[in-house]
Amino acid sequence: MTKVFTDGLSFAMPLLIMAIGAIYSEKSGVTNLAIEGFQGFGAFIGSLIAIILMGTMGQSSQAVLYIAMAFAAVGGGIYACLHALLCIRFKANQVISGVVVNILAVALTSFCTSLANTKINGTMSNKFILGVSTRFTIPVISRIPWVGGLFKNMYPFEIIIIVLVIFFWYLMYKTKFGMRLRACGENPQAVDAAGGDVEKTRWAAVIISGALSGIGGICFAYSLLANFSPSIYMGYGYLAIAAMIFGNWGIGTTAIVCMIFGLAKSGGYQLCIFMGLPSSYSDLFLMLPYVLTMILLIFFSKKNHPPKAAGEAWDKGKR
């Protein structure tokens, strides 16, 4: 039972940081289906740096993880500029732009991975082997029965993500920038009239969204997959978007939803082992988070309040 909580949290945290990325972009009025692409590209840059550093700093150095995380954020942010350019500058259809960015990310990273592998170690493989980051246990609280699992065998990135979540919650709801950003998604004309720069705010929001997704991506690469390969495009970016919609575009509610997803995933997996089913049945249990999303969306979608101006290109002349 504790393992359900441990695994659930380590899945929910990267998902949450990606969902917050999506919230930033959508709250500023840019529909963002590109989370999947951002996280993959961020993870690619992060693991590329990690592979290069591992050559000099040794295989087991944990400092590599933190440097890789920083670079993943930078990479995701830079790649997000493409989405921002298409949506804000070129006024392309935002849903299509999201799909374009995703397709390009899959193609670009898998091509560049095999290119980089031939350059670095002469193999044609499309994988960067990263290994799993070390875990730690918080001494006292982890002994609490059941819920103590949340504090057992934690990845260090979970702490970083929690700090980031609190910071970005503060930025969104308690600062001037955050208020401008939310206003851009509801009524950009009002922001313009009040002297704000709608385009700049949206650019900032999309870049933040890319950086956060990149962090989420590298965390998945370092925990769930233990490598970087095209299999990082497992649809977790879309799951993050579903969490955002289900969480009604609020950071607090989305955090709860992500936790539910995480527990559903790990719980299903443990249930499969507990019931003594052969491993071929695990596919059915892997399906659970998606089925759960569908069912929950049926009950909660009606009351949703998406940002009013999301999906529309900003047109100064419009009233």
Partner: peptide, 25 residues
């Protein structure tokens, strides 16, 4: 139910993929 088609189709994609994968395997 006002579920955006992008979200529901993507969720269905994964559900179908795992479900058929299970039967095939």
């Amino acid at each position: 139910f006002n579920i955006h088609e992008v979200v529901s189709t993507i969720m269905l994609n994964y559900i179908i993929s795992y479900l058929t994968g299970f039967f095939i395997n």
